[in-house]
């Protein structure tokens, strides 16, 4: 936006000072009008509850009464209590592992579709969305069937004689959460990576070849750096929501696989301590945001590249 400075030829008209946005361009108001319904909606549905959670986190719960004096006791408790520390750290670690596993699995798929999909690209992308045709809850239960003590994996491995007793490390712990989340979030990782690989000019790959690179070197020096915007986007898309995932650890995580969201739910529910739950939620948000910002900053040299 252009800020006009008053000068002799161009004095600031008195009425302009009254304007809410003094440097608004012509047509700016109609633009604002255009975005106002979704803006109002997100204000109401996102910003307001967020503000409420923030407010709540500064209050304290005295049995049935809500003490409305501002205090940071809840944050002190959230930061010092060992249990919350463990849950928070575990949530971040599980999410990081889920993110790495998901992106590593998604990349070859996206690569294959972008380079070898040919005329069937659309069909491949459609196939990738198939898991979404059923509810997430059903998919989680299906993983329970697959990974369970008498489940598909154990049954097959026992039947083929690879193991003598059922594997127990694949259900009701963090491993099960990682496996399930990595599968659930794969499409969200495949799509942005696919888009960024598709956008790579094929002549750049030929140029790398021409200048002496074999397929592996060319991948590391051209394809991978140029697809990093997609990898960064995919990582954030997977990492941010999985830290706060609640259903998967609840159903598959057992006691070792519980995450911070489960504790927040407990605080709002059984423990009847909404302010502490809010403080945990805000802390989790701050931690996730900080990690995401550091991650983006670390990758900024890949992100500023213009195609």
């Amino acid at each position: 936006m252009r800020h006009e400075t008053p000068s002799e030829e161009n004095p600031v008209k008195p009425w302009r000072k009254l304007r809410f946005f003094p440097s608004m361009q012509p047509g700016g108001w109609s633009g604002l009008a255009l975005i106002s319904p979704p803006f109002a909606y997100s204000l109401l549905m996102l910003a307001a509850p967020l503000l409420l959670v923030f407010l709540l986190s500064m209050w304290t719960q005295n049995y049935l009464e809500l003490d409305r004096t501002f205090t940071i006791t809840n944050y002190k408790e959230a930061a010092s209590e060992k249990l919350y520390q463990v849950l928070m750290a575990r949530s971040v670690v599980i999410s990081v592992i889920v993110t790495i596993v998901t992106v590593l699995l998604a990349y070859p798929i996206a690569y294959y579709i972008a380079f070898f999909g040919g005329k069937r690209k659309a069909i491949w992308l459609l196939l990738i969305t198939i898991p979404f045709w059923t509810s997430y809850l059903i998919r989680v239960f299906l993983w329970k069937v697959i990974l369970g003590y008498n489940g598909v994996v154990n049954g097959s491995l026992l039947g083929m004689g690879f193991i003598e007793e059922p594997l127990t490390f694949i259900l009701y712990n963090a491993n099960a959460v990682v496996i399930t989340l990595a599968h659930a979030w794969a499409p969200f990782a495949i799509l942005p990576i696919f888009v960024s690989i598709s956008r790579i000019d094929k002549s750049l790959l030929e140029a790398a070849r021409d200048l002496g690179d074999g397929p592996l070197r060319r991948f590391l020096r051209v394809t991978l750096p140029l697809s990093m915007p997609g990898v960064v986007a995919a990582s954030l898309i997977v990492f941010i929501p999985t830290v706060g995932d609640y259903v998967t650890p609840r159903l598959l995580g057992g006691t070792d696989g519980l995450m911070i969201a489960n504790m927040i739910q407990i605080q709002f529910g059984k423990a009847n301590n909404a302010p502490l739950g809010s403080a945990l939620a805000v802390s989790a948000m701050v931690i996730v945001a900080s990690i995401s910002i550091v991650f983006v900053l670390l990758n900024r040299r890949f992100l500023k590249v213009k195609g």
């Binding site: 000019d201 750049l204 030929e206 140029a207 021409d210 200048l211 051209v222 140029l226 890949f302």
Partner: peptide, 20 residues
């Protein structure tokens, strides 16, 4: 002999300058 092992180099029509 693949392109990366040939004693030739190419100036591409689009120039193919690595943007990164």
């Amino acid at each position: 002999v693949p392109p990366n092992q040939r004693p030739t180099n190419m100036v591409f029509q689009s120039y193919a300058i690595f943007p990164h």
